[in-house]
């Protein structure tokens, strides 16, 4: 992880193409969480792996330019707060915490099942960012000498 220049051009070229496909697949899994196997967690892991692919292939310094790490940390905290707020809206408009308060829609259609797709999206963002940031922070520690997280 020390080497900031990344891997060979072959890996870089493949990554440049494949990372978008992986991201697309992750988004697909998250959005269809209420219809097919998968969901927020599984899709979030796929998205995190796309980011980690970039980090491994291009090195840390490039990734730090490509992604705004500070912003990602804020989005991560915001996403989970949003989850709680949505849950509290369940108390306000439904009858209990996390209760459904939207229309259930038509069965097997993409826009259906009330609040569940919203929770899936939030969980997807949260899982993707936290998994990526955990590895990022662990790679950041200089194992030779002390440093602060």
């Amino acid at each position: 992880m020390k080497d900031s220049h990344g891997m060979t051009p072959i890996v870089k070229t493949v990554t440049r193409v494949s990372v978008w496909l992986i991201l697309l697949y992750g988004c697909y899994i998250i959005l269809h969480g209420h219809l097919t196997p998968g969901g927020g967690f599984a899709g979030g892991v796929v998205i995190a792996l796309a980011f980690l692919n970039v980090m491994l292939a291009y090195g840390k310094s490039f990734t730090a330019e490509w992604l705004n790490i500070r912003l990602l940390k804020d989005i991560e905290a915001a996403s989970i707060t949003l989850f709680l707020v949505l849950g509290l809206l369940g108390i306000a408009f439904g009858n209990a915490f996390l209760a459904n308060f939207l229309g259930k829609g038509e069965m097997f259609s993409l826009f259906s099942s009330g609040t569940i797709p919203l929770f899936n999206i939030i969980i997807g963002i949260k899982v993707a960012l936290s998994l990526f940031l955990v590895v990022w922070v662990l790679a950041d520690i200089d194992s030779a000498k002390g440093g602060d997280l």
Partner: peptide, 17 residues
Amino acid sequence: LPYFVLLPLLAAFLIAL
């Protein structure tokens, strides 16, 4: 009842935010 869990949880995430 749910607020015993929700309030500290919300505080934790708001602190992080």
